[in-house]
Amino acid sequence: VTTYKLVINGKTLKGETTTKAVDAETAEKAFKQYANDNGVDAVWTYDDATKTFTVTEMV
């Protein structure tokens, strides 16, 4: 189990959160659900070296 981080650069929601998951795909599903629940529709990137997902909402 690995800890993954999500950085949110949204128009109305900004911040960071983490989740523990067995792999990046599982973490991504959890983070996308979190973003969807909070109304963030954005572009996703992932950095495997830092285990960090970044979501940037387009203006």
Rank of each mutant, 00 (worst) to 15 (best):
V1G: 09
T2S: 10
T2G: 06
T2L: 09
T2M: 08
T2N: 12
T3P: 02
Y4N: 02
Y4H: 02
Y4M: 01
K5R: 11
K5F: 14
K5D: 02
L6N: 01
L6Q: 01
V7Q: 04
V7A: 02
V7L: 06
V7S: 03
I8H: 03
I8W: 13
I8Q: 02
I8K: 01
N9D: 08
N9K: 10
N9V: 13
G10I: 15
G10S: 13
G10Y: 14
T12C: 15
L13H: 13
L13W: 14
L13Y: 13
K14I: 11
K14D: 05
E16K: 06
E16G: 08
T18I: 08
T18S: 09
T18D: 04
T18E: 08
T19G: 02
T19A: 07
T19R: 05
T19H: 07
T19E: 04
K20I: 13
K20E: 14
K20Y: 10
K20R: 12
V22C: 10
V22I: 12
V22K: 11
D23V: 01
D23P: 00
E25I: 11
A27E: 00
A27Q: 00
A27P: 01
A27D: 00
A27M: 01
E28I: 07
E28V: 05
K29F: 06
A30I: 15
A30Q: 11
F31C: 01
F31S: 00
F31A: 01
K32T: 05
Q33K: 13
Q33Y: 04
Q33I: 11
Q33V: 08
Q33G: 05
A35W: 15
A35L: 15
A35V: 15
N36K: 14
D37L: 15
G39H: 07
G39F: 15
G39I: 14
G39N: 09
D41R: 08
D41F: 12
D41I: 10
A42Q: 08
A42K: 06
V43F: 09
W44H: 00
T45S: 12
T45G: 04
Y46M: 00
Y46L: 00
D47R: 01
D47E: 05
A49E: 11
A49M: 09
T50I: 04
K51N: 05
K51V: 02
K51H: 09
K51M: 05
T52I: 03
F53M: 01
F53H: 00
V55D: 01
V55M: 12
V55P: 01
V55E: 01
T56V: 08
T56E: 07
T56W: 11
T56D: 07
T56F: 08
T56G: 05
M58W: 11
M58R: 12
M58N: 11
M58S: 10
V59S: 12
V59I: 12
V59E: 13
